Amino acid sequence: MRAGELLGRTAYDLHGRRLGRVVDLVVRGGPDGRLRLTDLVVARHWYGGMSGRLIGPERHPSGPWLIRGVARLLSRGSRQVPADLVRLVPPVPGFPFGEPGGGPG
């Protein structure tokens, strides 16, 4: 599975409520050293993904106040959701945890 297959998809919760569009992915290293998709960042509005969430005050508290303020404003509608609590439309085979025994990508 590639990131490009997930980005831009519409995300719904397990009850069918629309969460927004996938704008970013969160991966973490497992005990075996392999990366694993754990969370998706979804945004309700098209501009929610523009902030990058890395320049926001919660991730990077230093820097010019104007950039921090704009990042906070743009990322208001975005949130991080555990991948196993999300259903994507159109569906992606192997989402959220990849296919058993499959190679990378």
Results as ranks from 00 to 15, higher is better:
62 S>G: 15
76 R>W: 10
59 R>H: 10
38 T>R: 15
41 V>C: 06
52 G>K: 13
97 F>P: 02
15 H>V: 11
13 D>H: 13
36 R>V: 13
99 E>W: 03
51 S>V: 08
6 L>A: 09
17 R>E: 10
97 F>G: 01
98 G>K: 12
74 L>G: 05
20 G>K: 12
28 R>P: 07
32 D>C: 00
5 E>W: 08
14 L>W: 01
21 R>E: 08
52 G>A: 08
52 G>V: 13
68 R>C: 09
81 V>F: 07
3 A>Q: 12
43 A>L: 07
101 G>V: 03
56 G>A: 04
80 Q>E: 06
26 V>C: 01
100 P>K: 00
11 A>T: 12
63 G>M: 12
96 P>E: 01
89 V>T: 06
63 G>N: 09
19 L>N: 11
102 G>E: 02
46 W>A: 04
21 R>G: 00
74 L>P: 04
62 S>R: 13
81 V>M: 09
12 Y>M: 08
55 I>P: 00
11 A>N: 06
15 H>Y: 11
105 G>P: 05
26 V>K: 04
6 L>H: 13
17 R>C: 07
47 Y>K: 11
63 G>P: 09
18 R>G: 00
13 D>S: 06
30 G>W: 00
83 A>Q: 05
15 H>C: 05
42 V>L: 10
67 I>K: 15
50 M>Q: 14
27 V>C: 02
82 P>L: 04
76 R>L: 13
102 G>D: 11
7 L>W: 07
1 M>S: 11
90 P>W: 02
102 G>T: 03
12 Y>E: 08
74 L>I: 05
2 R>E: 12
47 Y>F: 10
75 S>V: 07
50 M>C: 10
62 S>W: 03
24 D>P: 04
26 V>H: 09
15 H>A: 09
77 G>P: 11
90 P>E: 02
44 R>F: 04
13 D>C: 12
34 R>C: 08
10 T>R: 14
8 G>D: 02
102 G>M: 02
23 V>R: 07
30 G>Q: 11
94 G>N: 11
18 R>Y: 07
